[in-house]
Amino acid sequence: MTPTLDIAGLSTHFFTRDGIAKAVDGVSFSIAPGEVLGLVGESGSGKSVTGFSILGLVDPPGRVVAGAIRFKGEDLVGADAQRLRSLRGNRIAMVFQDPMMTLNPVLRIGEQMTEAISAHSKATKSEAQARARDALGAVGIASPEERLTAYPHHLSGGMRQRVAIAIALINAPDLLIADEPTTALDVTIQGQILSVVQRLVARSHTALLWITHDLSVVAGLADRIAVMYAGRIVEQGAVDGLLTCPRHPYTAGLLASLPERAVHGGRLASIPGMAPSLLNRPQGCAFRSRCGLARPECGNAMIAEKQVGDRRFACLHPLADSAGQVM
């Protein structure tokens, strides 16, 4: 089966006055129809730039400098602006942390929704209206008929985000890219959004890329997880295996520093130091200065990815797998 999204060796660099920031540097992953991939990493690790690259929304001084992005087999890196525009909001949709990035503050909710429908199909006005109302109802907004005439600023943050999601999903896209859409929201509202996305994605067999820094969210949502560090994916694989038996020292360190698994009154395991600047990333493994398992050879060359079963990781001295095998 052709994956919905297949990314190979993607590199997106920013050519700034201070030097070249290699925000994304050799990233590969793919997502099948109906599959949920959680892309996790700390701030500045390149998650959002990965998402923008797929959408063709990287602005100068940034540029995709290498790699392939194939959407249902079609190459997007070489595609012209018009083709990308016709895919966005239709076959490929997105939601961001700030819903106002996609909502227009001076248009009524209903107008924005019917516009999204008629831009990509030949629905009549009343058909579009009815679809918009149903879409609002589907994201759990009470009295959707009335809300169609509201402006974004009439709604709470959580409602705005649900409207943004309703618009993103209105044309049943093949791929949804969600960049931290619940990060600014409260737990009970986050739960509402997750349940909405989960249901709609399952119904239309959408491939979902869920970008977040919160491992707990993707633990319950995703099929697979990709962990990003300093512009590269250091480990990826099925959720359960990756969370119970991480192979890359950074993944292991992240998991250990979560208070959830720690004993009250004890100490949290923490990763010493901080992430390197992307302007002058060290040669070899970028995690080296923080890694307890580092050896001199870790600094020699770019660390190639290894594959064991469904797991991929980029590390010379990985942690043992559950069978105790170090390889």
Binding site: V187, S216, L221, V239, L255
Partner: peptide, 15 residues
């Protein structure tokens, strides 16, 4: 409602 690291393919629902 709080997401947990132990969750797997949880059906999210919230108040």
């Amino acid at each position: 409602g709080a997401p947990r690291l132990e969750d797997r393919k949880r059906a999210f629902a919230a108040i």
